[in-house]
Design a binder for these strands. Sequence first.
DNA 1: AACGTCCTCAACCGCTGTAGA
DNA 2: ATCTACAGCGGTTGAGGACGT
Length: 323
Amino acid sequence: MGRVPCCDKNGLKKGPWTPEEDLKLTNYIQFHGPGNWRSLPKNAGLKRCGKSCRLRWTNYLRPDIKRGRFSLEEEDIIIQLHSILGNKWSAIASRLPGRTDNEIKNYWNTHIRKRLLRMGIDPVTHTPRLDLLDMSSILRSVFGKPSLLNMQGLLRAQALMNQGLLKLASTASLLSTINNDENPNLASHNYVQNQVTTPPSLDSAQFQFQMPTTQTNNVEVFSGTVANLSCSSSPSGDENLVLQQNQVGLSGNHDALVHSLNNANQNMECDSVLPTPVSSPNRLNSSSNYVRSGTDEERDSFFSDLFEFEIPESLDDIADIFL
DNA sequence: AACGTCCTCAACCGCTGTAGA
DNA sequence: ATCTACAGCGGTTGAGGACGT
């Protein structure tokens, strides 16, 4: 036996709410409080079903709703949480005060998801998806000489491009994200200058994410640490998140480097709970003056910067085919 | 100006989980 | 244990605005 409908559909209005309806609903709830949605429309003089009233209230009329554009911090948080929780929009919304699950879901589907796809990142698994990469933009990022790219070079590149190199690209971008302190554009330099880095840390209510200080004295080309996050639920079933990390050291040797990168990616895939490459922990924790409200261009730039990396000298022979 | 296409997001639909009778 | 009402969730839809030709 199927469920009986929550209300008699006949004669009930559907579609967009009018200001008058909003006023009726708001006034009623202010006086009586929310709840008892089944009887609310009748009592409030609305020709709507209770479900519609509840949705209108929770998604639009509630006084604590924060309207307007999502900040970059909020985007960061959404991406981080989505990488852990998946499409649990209500759980994500509960960590973003003033935002509704519906709003977050819409924003994900219309903005963030597309942006990740453009970056070659699978929005479901949050892993780099090589088949999704917009190679032209990647190549522009890498070489900064779009005019020098030609079809012949691209074809040769395609023939020679292999999984290892693309993983290198993907993981290098991840590293640049993680290791970048304030300016994303500086990230790649960290890897070629053998710097002693003190990566940032995140310590918030939901996350424990510590990056160790790394000494990279003997590294020829790259140095860095890949944090691999995993998630577990507590026996009590609450949603406290426990994030663990695996460190993957990267060193100069080609084979070792690609091997490390493969391991890093395998770890990610095995855990199926993934770090979000486009989000840096220090951003969440940062009190920097980084511009957090952004135009579309700034947001695109913010994300595309995350895929900027430099080809080490030892890979010059590969890079040469583009030029 | 007119038309077509794309994009956004409020609202709906169908389903599940839960509490109470 | 079963049934029912209700709240809530996630996926989907479609109206309307923005944009391009």
